[in-house]
Amino acid sequence: MSLDTVAFALAAALMVGGALGVALTKDVMRLVVGLGAFLLGVAGMFLYYGHAFLATAQVFVYVGGVLVLMIFAIMVVHRANGRPVLEARHDIGAAAIGAGVSGMLFMTLRESVGGWLPQSGTPGGPIAVELLGRSIVVFELAGGLLLIALVAVLVIVGAGERR
């Protein structure tokens, strides 16, 4: 087993461990830690395939942006008496839906990219053109939607507090 395989295994273990943490823990803050581990694992996977830009962007945008936003949201809606407002529930229905969706995604991806293996060391130029070209509107819209969702959560929780 070469050392590169060890690196791959480390990234994969980080991803699987993080995903299991997200699925199994009830404390929302630990859930975020699991998500962070998963995202760093994905970044490691990108690095393994030689996409350094993608890995860095992953850390910058998801770990540094989205994750911080989530922790902020959790901190802001946390009550002063220490009782957590947000608690992940272990719901069989939700688990079934999650498993179904991931199964469906897996099948679709296997159908569409079946024999194709990621090439390592592809130049970053086309990615840059794609990101700053026609995809930029979609990305900005997604950012706007996230902001709206956060404000909505604050409004909903605030209304609950007043009642």
């Binding site: 962070g36 760093l40 860095t56 850390v59 910058f60 770990v63 540094g64 942006g65 994750l67 911080v68 922790i71």
Partner: peptide, 9 residues
């Protein structure tokens, strides 16, 4: 430049 974002977490 991206590293401080992990530190924030």
């Amino acid at each position: 430049l991206a590293v401080p974002s992990i530190e924030v977490i």
